[in-house]
Write a protein that binds this DNA or RNA. Structure first.
Lengths: 212, 212, 212, 212
DNA sequence: AATGAATGAGCTTTCATTCAT
DNA sequence: GATGAATGAAAGCTCATTCAT
């Protein structure tokens, strides 16, 4: 655990400990799954006392939900940021969206471990659904718009909704591949698959990107 | 639980009860996830005694593995069968493979519930990996071959391995979509997405299939 | 398990199976202790069905008691026989009694395993006491008489009751030694210890016996 | 259960409860044997919650081993102390060793109950052997030395090793007698037996000790 | 007479949560 | 605010016993 040094000030220490608990929880879920995530393991890794979890979070459940919410927020901020700094042409923006999903900040064992762990709980706890959904609707909407713009630019008439669905599914599927076989996963090859698809759809628009 | 009537004969009753336990386990995993799957819940649903699980299966763990193995076997048999009864042209065979993954026998809440539940355990129990992998290698190999044949037939030179990866990911992603939003999932639209992709790659070869 | 061949005749087979259960029980108690003696283990070793134990013996408890009773009977018959075939002089008879306790028919892992296993249950089940006592009163009485005769013969005036107690205790203690360290136990040395004691008491009467 | 009053102070209460569990375990083993020793019985007698056993001791097994180890330690400390405060002549020291084994602190129902209970497990759990052996080697060695000194003093040439073995066995056997018949056991008579033996070996050296 | 599938009470152990310090 | 000893419900598992075959 790479923990930051203990800060000074009462409130600061409190927040610092809270963060330690959340980070430890993420690590433990990644290693042992949700079923294997016990308060005892979390507090040992976070190096805090047993009772502190129930001081900061009302219950174990609340802690888990908090962890998930944080993950979801980070993901959202991440792709939005990547979009902000991207160029204005639709192809560049779409490319940015795709690349965002393969950025190590997102595509790493911890993030995906949490993601898949909570997804497995969706049927039992429908409340999680909003947080673990396949790409939130804002992102979907953005993608549809980009395909529409691409159509307009190129004069092609692909069904933007269907394309969005296909692209989202592909990204989702490649995440799954990474989650299951993190050791063998080949990021460039995965990107090549995606851009092969986009290149065939809009010839020339994604040339040279993601080519192995 | 829609249970078959109690059969006659000692051995038959034994097998019938064994099956009741497996079916109940599947149902409980689907409803409550693996973490929420307790022997107590299983035996109540199966309407057998607590001890029977350990009579038929050595342990709870063995029961879960058995359930998963059975699921994996059924999936394999299913797509092989669909391939056997398909026509000989590569496009038809590929189409059969895709359709197989959307057949209600595979794409249903129980099957996918089990699938995703066990996947979430992969990091904690690596032994599961072989049974929950994204499409087994035999299926992958078959798909690569079909793309190669399509290339030969059409004179196109798409990278068969990349295409296979893209297709597999898309199917995987659409399963995820179904798993998360079973109520809203639109099977025809999903198929349309896939065949839009294939049609763009091999124009005319998948015409009229999966079109909404 | 060295089992005799299956005999013919309904009643004979019944008794044969009954014996197989008892022999298996002895073996299992020796190996696993009473706590580790389960019906499942017994029937597996005896190669009979689960239910048969409760057919032949009312309960597991009754089986254990039966095993112990049999052991106690065999022990009694054994020393009585050794006494019968011994010469008439008191020293020879006493010597016979001592040697009887070191005869492999008595001093072996199975017999002592059972003995000590049941003794450990005495507080919990006082009923066992009569069967596992340190040397039954008949044997004690016989020994006291022999010491008295030896006194009369030799003109010595040792307290026969105290001597009997001392001798019994020594034999008991040597059994304990054998039970705890069967591999290292040295039968001749043990006998030498006992006869050293007797020789000092009655000089010349046990000369050359048990000398290492 | 004669329990000491609840002390004050967090750590003190913790130790007090820990001790209550150990004491209760000893009592339960004495009453019901190891097979009949359940956590439920122990915690009821100790008047603590079920989970506390696994808080203080990792498992039931660890608790039992702890109890046994403690018993063994106390025994060792006891005879060493008795030897320390004894006079220097070999006869006095030997006498002290014998008397130590009949001291109520050692020769009582609880201590012997534990002793015999664990011995019955030796075949099934060889690890216990070191803790339940018949007199540890240090004690054996001490005894051999004392007999040698007695030989030197008296000019006699008894085999010191054989004598040690005989004496140890006798003490062991008398313990067995006490364990089986605690109500009828006559401590003075038992001592008289032992010293009769020693007196015959070394006339005059143990005069007047243990005489009824 | 003999079987062995099935039962269910009772076992040890785990672990989220509480609360006196 | 933070601690961690203690709780006790609930878990998986064992196994003597029953009884339809």
């Amino acid at each position: 655990m790479n923990s930051e040094p203990k800060p000074k000030g009462r409130e600061a220490v409190k927040l610092w400990r809270r963060k330690k608990i959340i980070d430890a929880t993420i690590e433990i879920i990644t290693r042992h799954g949700i079923a294997g995530t016990t308060i005892a393991r979390v507090v040992e890794l976070a190096d805090v006392s047993m009772g502190l979890v129930n001081v900061h979070f009302k219950s174990k459940d609340a802690l888990l939900t908090e962890v998930l919410r944080q993950m979801a927020d980070e993901y959202k901020l991440h792709w939005r940021h990547k979009l902000e700094v991207a160029a204005l042409e639709p192809a560049s923006r779409l490319q940015a969206l795709v690349l965002a999903d393969f950025d190590p900040e997102v595509l790493n064992l911890k993030t995906l471990g949490i993601w898949f762990a909570f997804r497995a709980q969706v049927r039992a706890r429908p409340g999680y659904l909003d947080l673990v959904g396949t790409r939130e609707s804002e992102q979907i909407q953005t993608t549809v718009e980009l395909f529409r713009k691409l159509n307009r630019e190129t004069g092609l008439e692909h069904d933007a909704v269907l394309l969005t669905r296909a692209l989202s599914a592909m990204l989702e599927g490649l995440w799954t591949e990474y989650y299951l076989y993190p050791g063998e996963f080949d990021r460039d090859g995965a990107l090549a698959s995606v851009f092969l698809f986009l290149n065939v759809l809009y010839p020339g628009r994604f040339q040279g990107v993601g080519v192995k």
